[in-house]
Each structure stands twice: as C-alpha cells, then as structure tokens.
Design a protein around this nucleic acid. Structure first.
Length: 356
RNA sequence: GUCUAACUAUUCUAAU
C-alpha cells in the first residue's frame, strides 16, 4: 500500500489520472494517505469534478484533504467553491490558511487576503510570500516593498524573486536589477525572472545578455527567450531558436503559435498548431485562443469554424476542451468580419456568458 | 509507522 500510494502520487505528477485511479482501486485497504494522494492528483490537474466526487465519497477527511480541495478550486479561479470549503474545515493549520490566502491573492482579492492574514494565528515565510505575490501581480510594488521591508520576519529566495517581478510588472526594471544585484543566492527562477523583467521593458539586448549569463537553464528560460524575440518582432529568430530548444513543452508551442498569429502569419500559426499535435502534444485553451486569433487574421470563417468546433460545446470535445469566453468572442468576431452576421449573433446568444 | 497538502519565473490571447 505504501508503494502504491507513492505510485498514485507519481502518476498524478505527470498527469496520468487514469493510471493513478487504477492504482488506487488496486489497493485493498486504502488509507487516508491513499485517498489524499488521489485527491491531490485530481485537484492539481484541474479535474475538480473527479476530486469533488472522491472527496464526498471518502470515509474521513483531514486537513490535507481540505487543503487539496481549496487549492484545486483556487487554481481554477473558482473562489465561490474554495471559500465555503475553507469555512467548513474544522481543523485549520497554517498550510490551509495559506492556501486560502494565496487563492485570494492570486485572484486579486487583496482586501480579503489581508483580512484573512489578520485572522491567522501564526505566519511563516510562505504566508508572507503569498501576500507579496498578490501585491506584485496587482501591480502594487509600493505595497510589496512595504511588506518586504517591514512586514515580514523571514525571507527566502522566493521572497526575493517575487520582488524582482513586482518591480518589473510596473516597468521599474532598474529596481528589479537592484534587487537582482543585491541577492547573494540566485536560482534559475531568479535568472528567468530577470530575463522576463527585461522582456517587460522590451529590452531584447539585456534579456539576451541575462540568458547568456545564466548558470543554469530550463524550458521556462528558453521559452522566455523565444518570447523575447517574438515580441520584438523577430519572428524568424524566434522560430530559429524554437527549433533548437533542448525540450519543448506546451508553452513553447503556444508561444510560437502566438508569435506567428500576432504578426499576422496565420498559415505558419496553423502549421505549428498541427505540428504540435503530430508531436503528440495536447493543445490547451491558450493554444486555441491563439489559433482562433490566427484564423481571424486569415479572414476565412470556415477555418475558424473548424478550429472552434474542435472544442466540443458539451465538454466532450477535443481533449475535453471547452470554449471559454475569449474563444466565443473571438469566434463571434471572425464570423462577423466574414459577413456571417446571423451566425455571429446566434453564437452571441448561445454562449454561456454575458456579452459585453 | 519513515508515503500526501500551502508561496515565486515563460503563453497576454477578440474588436479597438
């Protein structure tokens, strides 16, 4: 059972939910660890349907189970489910509190995050980092600065890396550089954050310099450099680099599809889209957003229809993708610009979102 | 019973 539990975790980490489930069902007497492992696997892969039905079928819950659920919903941006679950948990420890705090912070609900922080019986560096990241992503470097300098009692690499991002997001790259140079220890996230800080300010030269100096690179750093070329309009360079990446993930492909789409190279964008599937990668919602943008440039509504139809409206579509608001709106635009006004209007009516 | 949970980097995505 001990080994089986670990196997569930391993399958969960690489997204093989079917296999994780099979291992779980092969255990004669699953214990709470087994349940939690599978629950975490579902939650972290965004399958909250499965997570929820497992959760309610479990013999008992502990604080880990609650945390998994709260975090799973939070990752989907579903605070409406996360918060009530958090409220219902009897046992709350710092991890559960921090998960809820991070959920608020990531969603930009800083008031709620601050209020929760006040309720917390204890804090640690992860708690403060979660708050710090909230300020950073909301574009509030002053608040982040205040918390970083006066509000926390403990700092780690994550805190410092977050500050680089906080300044970068408001275009204060000089300050990011200052933070970077102050740091005694840096990891690959530090370096990549600095690269992206220069991307923010459209400084390709500095971005490339950072990349060349990095002591260690991973697929994220490579992707960031591809983006650097793409957003400075050097699509050919981006493509050249893309073909030399040591490893490609879905973001690499999405970045490249977007690179083509953004400069109106619709055919190349669609080609990349097909090639990524030939390579065995599953497109996600972001891929389809870029693909539809490319179709919009193409000015051929039929192509747009085909791509849009890949995402089944009833959830049974391609790779289980469901069209989101941006997909609908883009498709409406494609139809409208193609003169198919009736269908555009119909889609507007049909889509499960409020039109704006 | 040594196995499970929280924080930081890359996609910016319709019309304009």
């Amino acid at each position: 059972r001990y080994l089986a539990n670990l196997l569930i975790q391993a399958y969960g980490r690489c997204g093989s939910l079917q296999k994780a489930k099979a291992v779980f069902h092969g255990i004669q007497n699953p214990n709470l660890f087994s349940y939690n492992m599978l629950l975490v696997a579902y939650a972290q892969n965004g399958d909250m349907q499965a997570a929820s039905s497992l959760f309610y079928g479990m013999p008992c819950w502990d604080v880990v189970s609650w945390t998994a659920m709260v975090q799973g919903y939070a990752d989907q941006g579903d605070l409406a489910h996360a918060k009530p679950l958090f409220d219902r948990a009897r046992q709350r420890n710092i991890v559960l509190f921090t998960a809820m705090l991070a959920a608020y912070a990531q969603a930009g609900h800083l008031e709620e995050a601050r209020a929760l922080l006040k309720l917390m019986p204890e804090f640690n560096v992860v708690t403060w980092n979660a708050m710090l990241a909230g300020y950073a992503q909301a574009g509030l470097p002053e608040e982040a600065q205040a918390l970083f300098s006066n509000g926390m009692a403990e700092w780690n690499l994550v805190s410092w890396n977050t500050m680089i991002q906080a300044y970068a997001l408001l275009g204060q790259v000089d300050r990011s550089v200052l933070v970077f140079e102050t740091m005694a220890v840096r990891d690959v996230v530090t370096w990549t954050s600095m690269l992206c800080a220069f991307n923010q300010s459209m400084d390709l030269i500095s971005a490339k310099q950072v990349f060349d100096k990095m002591p260690e690179r991973n697929v994220v750093s490579w992707n960031a450099l591809v983006l650097a070329y793409a957003q400075s309009g050097q699509t050919d360079q981006a493509s050249w680099l893309f073909h030399r990446l040591p490893s490609l993930d879905i973001t690499s492909w999405n970045t490249m599809v977007a690179a083509y789409a953004n400069v109106g190279h619709a055919t190349e964008a669609l080609e990349s889209f097909y090639r990524m599937q030939l390579e065995g990668l599953e497109p996600d919602g972001t891929t389809l957003t870029h693909v539809l943008a490319a179709c919009n440039h193409l000015g051929e509504p039929e192509q747009g229809r085909r791509c849009f139809a890949l995402m089944g409206a009833d959830g049974d579509g391609y790779h289980g993708l469901l069209p989101q608001k941006d997909h609908y709106l883009c498709m409406v635009t494609i139809l409208a610009r193609g003169g198919q006004l009736k269908d555009a209007a119909e889609l507007l009516n049909y889509m499960p979102f409020e039109p704006q």
